[in-house]
Design a protein around this nucleic acid. Sequence first.
DNA 1: TTGACATGCAACCATTTGGTTGCCTATTAT
DNA 2: ATAATAGGCAACCAAATGGTTGCATGTCAA
Lengths: 104, 104
Amino acid sequence: MDEVFKALADASRRSLLDRLHAKNGQTLNDLCDGLAMTRQAVTKHLAILEAANLVTTFKHGREKLHYLNPVPIHQIGERWIKKFERGKLTALSELKRQLEKRDE
Amino acid sequence: MDEVFKALADASRRSLLDRLHAKNGQTLNDLCDGLAMTRQAVTKHLAILEAANLVTTFKHGREKLHYLNPVPIHQIGERWIKKFERGKLTALSELKRQLEKRDE
DNA sequence: TTGACATGCAACCATTTGGTTGCCTATTAT
DNA sequence: ATAATAGGCAACCAAATGGTTGCATGTCAA
């Protein structure tokens, strides 16, 4: 779970996930297109995404195809975010009470 | 949004959020209890959480009370994670197809 | 078979990050 | 008044991060 959070912390990596979401199965060179960084930088980002299991790859000849794996993202939603949704309203009402207390 | 993702990338900070979720309105010293780091390190983490609007604070005498703000977490779920839920099944079936193709 | 293309590997670099120590300020309690 | 308590500020440090360049390897096409 920590690896996933860390992988998602970088905007370039999130943008790579966005691009795979828009069009799955792209090669490394496809994913480099239009990005203001070298291919090797993209390779590193993809390696981090792959280590976090957010991306799966398949070699096809000399090309490497990248596929989005949405499962860890879904798990963040289920196992982590939902935990904070419960009690959201009470937390907010406490906040509100404190904000009002400031003006006393 | 980027600040929120970055703030959530660190396990110590996520644990601080957990602690505030369990018991809201804790002081800095409360939050330091049982952690294997100095008060100043915790202060820095809380500052990052506050900058990301995940935590709101109120001064009460010489104490500083910390409150969880669950809204940004909720927004990550709504604006980011949900985007990847749509098409999750098709993405997975593509993955499956590719995994099977490997054995050809 | 040879050149072009897609990717991999490794060393290197600057900046950011997570943490420390030391000291200062403000508030509370005796 | 003064000591203890709660927190703030700043300098410093090691390690991690995000990026680069240079070169090597494997695969396809002419």
